[in-house]
């Protein structure tokens, strides 16, 4: 049995310790907001937080996350006032929407670490997250907006 702490709840899973976190979230815990697109950490659609840092769930085996805190888009969305979610709505970012949970998780981890990132820091943090619809300009705007909202919220 493997113990996993996901979105504040503790789960006991009878799973292969080599199974990537992505599939445990999607198929065993039914948290389907985390997406599959490449399986080799090239696209970022599976981005979640492990101990608060952005990580690619498709290459992270369960054995590596025992005892760690995992947050998925469903966990982040438990706070509908989260500045990144609000910013994404205000900038009307999604088109097809498939990559957006990953984009949002990558962004919120970035802003937790660097509340006011430079353009280069944004690109470094988000370049691993592909969007085939081309919502990049809006993601950029939404990150700027989230920065403002966060400062407003926190000050």
């Amino acid at each position: 049995m493997i113990s996993l702490q996901v979105n504040g709840s503790l789960y006991e899973l009878d799973a292969d310790p080599d199974m990537p976190l992505l599939w445990a979230l999607r198929d065993l815990l039914n948290l389907t907001g985390t997406k599959y697109s490449c399986g080799i950490a090239q696209c970022g659609a599976c981005t979640v937080h492990i101990d608060g840092r952005a990580a690619q769930a498709c290459i992270t085996p369960l054995s590596h996350v025992v005892g760690k805190t995992i947050t998925t888009i469903e966990g982040l969305a438990e706070n509908p006032g989260h500045p990144v979610l609000l910013a994404w709505q205000q900038m009307n970012v999604p088109q097809c929407g498939h990559c957006q949970p990953g984009q949002i998780m990558a962004t919120s981890a970035l802003l937790d670490e660097k509340p006011n990132p430079t353009d280069t820091e944004i690109e470094q943090a988000l370049d691993g997250n592909i969007c085939r619809c081309g919502t990049y300009p809006r993601i950029r705007q939404a990150i700027r907006r989230a920065t403002q909202l966060k400062q407003g919220v926190e000050s």
């Binding site: 948290l31 389907t32 998925t72 709505q89």
Partner: peptide, 21 residues
């Protein structure tokens, strides 16, 4: 006008093909 399906997609609720259970 903002997309009617935006909120579901932002909150990870939108169901795509692989998400059907």
């Amino acid at each position: 006008t903002h997309s009617l399906d935006g909120a579901d997609k932002i909150h990870g609720r939108a169901r795509f093909g692989m998400d059907i259970r």
